[in-house]
Each structure stands twice: as structure tokens, then as C-alpha cells.
Nucleic acid binder design. Sequence first.
DNA 1: AACGTCGTAGCAAGCGCTTTCTATCGGTGA
DNA 2: TCACCGATAGAAAGCGCTTGCTACGACGTT
Lengths: 354, 354
Amino acid sequence: MTVTLADVAARARVSPATVSRVLNGNYPVAASTRERVLRAVDDLDYVLNGPASALAAATSDLVGVLVNDIADPFFGIMAGAAQHAIGEGAPGRAGGEKLTVVCNTGGSPERELNYLTLLQRQRAAAVVLTGGAVEDADHIATMAVKLARLADAGTRVVLCGRPPVPAAGEAITAALTFDNRGGGRRLTEHLLTLGHRRIGYIAGPAERTTTRHRLEGHRTAMEAAGLGGDGLERLTVHGRYDRRSGYDATLELLRREPRLTAVVAANDTVALGACAALRDRGLRIPDDISVAGFDDLPFSVDAVPALTTVRLPLHEAGARAGRLATGAETPPPGGVATIGGELMVRASTGRPAS
Amino acid sequence: MTVTLADVAARARVSPATVSRVLNGNYPVAASTRERVLRAVDDLDYVLNGPASALAAATSDLVGVLVNDIADPFFGIMAGAAQHAIGEGAPGRAGGEKLTVVCNTGGSPERELNYLTLLQRQRAAAVVLTGGAVEDADHIATMAVKLARLADAGTRVVLCGRPPVPAAGEAITAALTFDNRGGGRRLTEHLLTLGHRRIGYIAGPAERTTTRHRLEGHRTAMEAAGLGGDGLERLTVHGRYDRRSGYDATLELLRREPRLTAVVAANDTVALGACAALRDRGLRIPDDISVAGFDDLPFSVDAVPALTTVRLPLHEAGARAGRLATGAETPPPGGVATIGGELMVRASTGRPAS
DNA sequence: AACGTCGTAGCAAGCGCTTTCTATCGGTGA
DNA sequence: TCACCGATAGAAAGCGCTTGCTACGACGTT
């Protein structure tokens, strides 16, 4: 029924071994023989059996990219860039590219582990973990073990936009982390410089590192300006990384402090929700209140008014992660590289009215 | 080094066959034996070898989802929903879920074929193709052959938001297509009803079915209103499905017809670009000019003014495609189902000024 | 009491490919 | 002219798992 290596070999009048070698191109084969084999492959529409090949060679061409939310461009951009870089990179054993697959964890630790197991099963060549991690001691420990096991089996592990996993240093090929603290700090400093004092903060899910780091940056700036203390807690609302959450949180902030002059959102999507809520309340941006986001997703420049935010080089980061995953790029010294964000001041922030 | 089935068998004092059967749960095994095996699996941290299993069983748990652009929420939403549905669905053979992988073709026919080959190699359980297809005779023929071959090998093929492949009817398990023509027509009818006559159209890449169908819908409406003829061609500009393209095309349309009162974009992202261009030209939306999009992506309701568009139930479609891919849902009669869009009239369209 | 019949477990033959080791053959330097 | 060598090709042993078939008690039947 299906064509096998042996069929090709028969047709080309050579042994299966030779066909395999032609296909993998890592052993001298006379040009004429190669030609004959290639023609047979073509004639028969032969397609290599991946599992068989992976089994025999004890490795595969699979590269897994784990994302928290595939519908979020933040991840889509990184994953796309990584996939592209991997495709371009060192071609896989079997004359073809690597098969990059994107796995959607939905932010759930269980699914994350689950996908890692599946990838481990497939003896993946590499795994790229993107986005913030969940800060649960148990989960971190489990992850460390899992990653170590993957590394043991020869799978390269790359983190992209994610802090290094403690106690798994050995296992990780490279970690690319975003300077969320610095970005958060600069964003708030910008607002402070404009003269804002009553600044609300809409944070993401409390248990994620990204959330915490951005928030820490914000608070560092606030405290440096003598605005620390209880107010900080009162003007912080946690939610998910989506529009709805930004909308609701903004209303809550307004309830807590009607005289708010600025809102900083955990990311651009949330900021958009915040804008919608403010608008529904009849507030003008930035005249009555300023809004800032984070990430600088493509749509942010198109928002009205254009969103002030922190640009993260998602594309570059993803591409680099991809190259690290294929081994096309050598890991940074120490295995960890921090990628900075750039403050993009646009129309959604201005001086406070008062 | 790595733990194998045999190791587990030895530890549980049973034969490898029994371990396999416990793991796959499709053969009677005494409770006590099962327990013993499971404990051994746990003790040894055994992880099934995917390739070996796939090789022996001649099937795998892989499901591939092909998308044109992973950074575009249009695809992200469908892919995410499909992945979710597949995860929930019938658990795979090996006691686990299926591994859903998202492959990014970037809209390139070659990469599309390439990924299909890779998936074929892996003996994927199913393949979901999302988004519009390229209308190139050669490519269509090649695809038909490829899909037929996949189907032959037992891979389920599901199309989601994509027209059926001619000459591959047999091969395709089910096709879910969007009513792009109808949506396009209703959108333009809405504009015509408001009194618009000089309507520009920003189309996507000419070679894609989605582009053509939406455009046909638009033209049908225009012609029905007695606005056919040359003008139609003159007021149509093709571009890519991205913001930049919408921006540029809008300027071009304005050049061709300065008295334009409405712009219909190929999708929401393009519409956003159009809005930006109009704004930069000092035109107010919808007072001076109306803008409409397509898809109703999450950010569209947040645009200012909120975008009038055609809502496509991307989430539902993706989920259904996922269920079809796992066999959890029976294909619609004839294998083809058309999914309608809903006109969402919002603030970006209004009566023309004149 | 002898004999089917379940319910379980093991045997062993692959699945299709890679790779080590060995065989072969046409040169080549002495 | 001959032993030797490099370049190729083949033989065969797995890689780790699944599964059809067989084996074997313990029961329930007649």
C-alpha cells in the first residue's frame, strides 16, 4: 500500500541502506547511484516515514514552541518569528526542514506539562517556551525536573520572554528575557515626569512573572517619586491579559479613585479595554486622563489616540529563540540574555488636567 | 539510559505486551496487574516513545493545523479553538491527548505543501487547513493529489474557512466555508442603504479565494444598485491583509476618487490602516467618510469609532473543525457546510455628508 | 467428571528506517 | 606485478512498541 524505503531501493536496484544514505546525505554515494535513487523516489512519490526514522535515529525534526495564548499577537509574533528562523536554519537530517509546531497552553500549568510530555514522547529536537511563567513553587519544581529530563534526552530548551527556571540551569540551552521591570519603570517615570501623581495600575494575573515584574517596575518608579505606601496597593487591580479585564479594572479603579489622572495597563490589549471604559465614562484621552500600555503590538499605533507603550522586539526575540533552538546561534554567555524595551511616547499620554 | 517498555515490564514482572496494553487500555488486564504496571511506570518515570509507538501502530496522535499567518488573530482564534476542541475530544491511543500543532505557512503555497509532507511523514491523524486558498491551477492540482494521499494514509482532512478543493472531494473529511460573498454583499448593501454611491474597495491579495469572494459580494451589491461598470474596477485596490496595505491603498483610492464617501476593507486589520490614512488626511469617520471591515476581530469593537464589520464566528468554526478532525462530530451532509457572517453595524459607518 | 468458555498473560513477528561492520573493486606506489 | 588503500555498496542487527495468536487456569455446564 504505502511506499517504503525498500520499494525505492528495489526500483533503483540498490540496497535500502544506500537509499537511506542518499536521503540523509551524510555518507558518500556515487553521483550516478544517487541520481538513480532520486529518480526512483520521485517515480514512487516516496515519503519518508517520520516515526520509523525517528525511532532508528533516536532523534526527530520536531521543534515545539509553547505559547500561552495563540490568539494573542504577542505570542503569535514570537512564535511566527521563531518558526521562520527554525525553517531557515540548519536543515533537518532527512533532507527537509524541521517541523516547528506551536502548542497552546492557555496559560495552564497542567497543559504546559502535558505538552512537554508529548514533545518528550516525540523526542523533539528542541522546545521553546515563550511568555511569562507561573510562579508556583510546585509547578516550578516539576518544570525543572521535566526540563532536565528533556535536556537529558538531547532536546534543546530555549526560553523566550521568560525568566530562567531556578534549579534547571543545566537543562536550559538559553534564556531570553524581557526587561519588564525596566520597561515598567520607565513608563511610569514618563507619566511622573508629565506631572501625574494619581496613577492607577491594571496588572495581569498575579501569579505570572511578567505581571509581577512589570508591576515592580511601576512601583519602583512610584516609590522613587515619594508615592509609595498604601496608595500603591489601592490603585492596583489585577485581571487577565485581555480587553474585558482592562475594561472592568478601569471602572474599578475609577470607583476607588475618581480623580485618577492616568492608567497604566499590563499590556496593550488591556490598555485598549481601559480606553473603552474611560470613553464610556465620558473621559477624554489624554485630556482628562492618560493611558499607557506595554508590548507595542501592531494595533497600538492605530488606536485613537495612538497608545504610549513600551516596545518589545518580539520579532527579533522570537527569531533569536528559533536560531538558538536549532543551534544556529550560540547561547549568550551564562545562557541568559536580557532584552530591553523601548519607551514609545505617543498620543495617549499627556499632562494632567489640573 | 532511557527507560523503555521492557524496563517497566521487568519491574512489574509482566511481559512488555501487558504493559503496552495497560498503557493503551484497549485490552482486558486484571486490576491488580494494571496497578502494578502503573506503579512501575511511575517509579521509573517512564515516557512512551512516540516514534516507536507510531511506527508499530502505524498511526500517531499528531494533528496539524495549517494557518496563513500565526501573528494574525483571525488565524490565532481559529487555531486556538481547534486545538482546544481536539484536546478535549477523543483521547489518543496512548492514554494521552492528541498533540495539536500549528504550522505557519505564511501564505506560501510551497510551505503549505512542505508542511503537508512533514505531517504526512509523521503519519498525522488529521490535518486542518484554515483560511483562504491560493487560486493557482497548478497548486490546486498538487494539493488535490497531496490531500488524496494523506487521506489514503488514513489522515482526516478538514478545511476551515476555506472552499472545498475541487477534484479532491473524496479525500476531504469535511469543509467548513465562510459565506464571504454573502457577507461582502450585505456589508455593501448596508452602505448603499445609507446613501453611499462612491464606495472604494480595498481587496486582499488577488490570488486568494477569500479575497475574490468578498469582492464578488461587494460587486454583486454594487451592480444590483446600478453602480456596476468601469467604476468598480477603478475603485478597487489590491494589497496584502495587513495594516500597512490598508493605509497605502486608502491613499491610492483617495487619489483616484477624492470624493469617496466610503471605504470597504478586505478585513478589519486593513480597515484599521484605512482609518489611519483617512485620519492623517484630516477626514473624520464617519462624518466625512465611512469605513467598514470584515471578520470582527476582538479589537474592532474598540477602534474609534467602533468598526462596522461582518462578524465571522471564528471560534465556533475552529472548534467545530477540531471536532471534525478528531471524529468527535460527524461531517455535514455532502461534507460541506457554509457558515454565515453577521453584519455588525457600528459607529464607523454613517450617512454620506453630501 | 469431562469439556467448553471466559478472562488474562505471554510469545514473537514485525513496523520502516539507520548504521556499524564487512565486502568489493578499481586504482597506485614500490 | 602485487599488496594495499580509498571509495562505495550491501548485509544485518537493532531502535521500542503493538498485536495476532497461543497458552493456561478457573469456572460453569451437562
